[in-house]
């Protein structure tokens, strides 16, 4: 446009320098914003996790830092997929109280359903929550605690009550209700919760004894 000389090499150089300058300035803006918000974002993430965990294990039950007292485990068979999953441990006066297992129901109607399953030391469920899912709005999304109380019915259940064989939806001969118009979603959730209980039964001692691990670096 302007200040254009007849020398193409000079023009190209000037353009490259100009573009480089803009790249520097815009990168500086992003970097400054990042510095400004980094701590706040990390704190938000921590609080969000903690809020989710405290819905399942009331703060009075434990005296340790749930977010820090965590190990990462991988068990494609019992925890749904081959991702490393955080397991949070709750303790009081150093004694194990409960764990919160992150698990996946891989066979939801709209894909994987991520769940938190809180289990007390004796193997009874303290609570289950769906963390993320892609189930049909108005049908399968009744697994959200905001939409219906269905997910609360797992509370106080264990592998003895109901008996392991009856950990199914009613249509499959079990004890858990399905939804009107949606069986696949509750079936997937029931199966995943049952597998989480089995995982807990098989690994109980090591789950509490393994020292905490630093969080896996999030590379997004």
């Amino acid at each position: 446009m302007h200040r254009k000389t007849d020398n193409p090499a000079k023009n190209a150089l000037r353009g490259a320098l100009l573009l480089g300058l803009f790249a520097l300035i815009t990168t500086a803006v992003v970097a400054a914003t990042y510095q400004l918000t980094r701590e706040k974002i990390a704190e938000n993430e921590r609080l969000a996790v903690l809020r989710g965990l405290h819905e399942l294990i009331s703060p009075s039950l434990h005296d340790n830092d749930l977010v820090q007292d965590v190990i990462y485990v991988t068990d494609p068979e019992l925890l749904g997929d081959d991702e490393a999953k955080p397991i949070y441990r709750a303790r009081k006066n150093g004694q194990p109280v409960a764990v919160i297992i992150t698990t996946t129901a891989p066979d939801g109607y709209g894909g994987a359903i991520k769940l938190l399953v809180a289990i007390d030391h004796g193997g009874r469920i303290l609570g289950v929550r769906a963390v993320s899912h892609k189930e049909t709005p108005g049908l399968g999304d009744a697994i959200e605690v905001e939409k219906s109380d269905w997910i609360l019915r797992f509370t106080a259940k264990s592998l003895d009550d109901p008996p392991e064989k009856q950990w199914k939806v009613k249509r499959d001969g079990g004890v858990f209700d399905q939804f009107t118009g949606a069986t696949i979603t509750p079936r997937a959730v029931v199966k995943a919760v049952k597998r989480a209980l089995i995982y807990y039964r098989e690994h109980r001692e090591e789950l509490f004894d393994t020292p905490s691990q630093p969080p896996v670096e999030d590379d997004t």
Binding site: L19, A23, T26, V29, V30, T33, T37
Partner: peptide, 26 residues
Amino acid sequence: RDELRIPVYVLVIASLVTAVELLMHA
């Protein structure tokens, strides 16, 4: 300059959006 305008626009918009994203996250 005319031939540079699109990359510059993209730079400006992308960095603004990233800033907004970070602020919203915070």
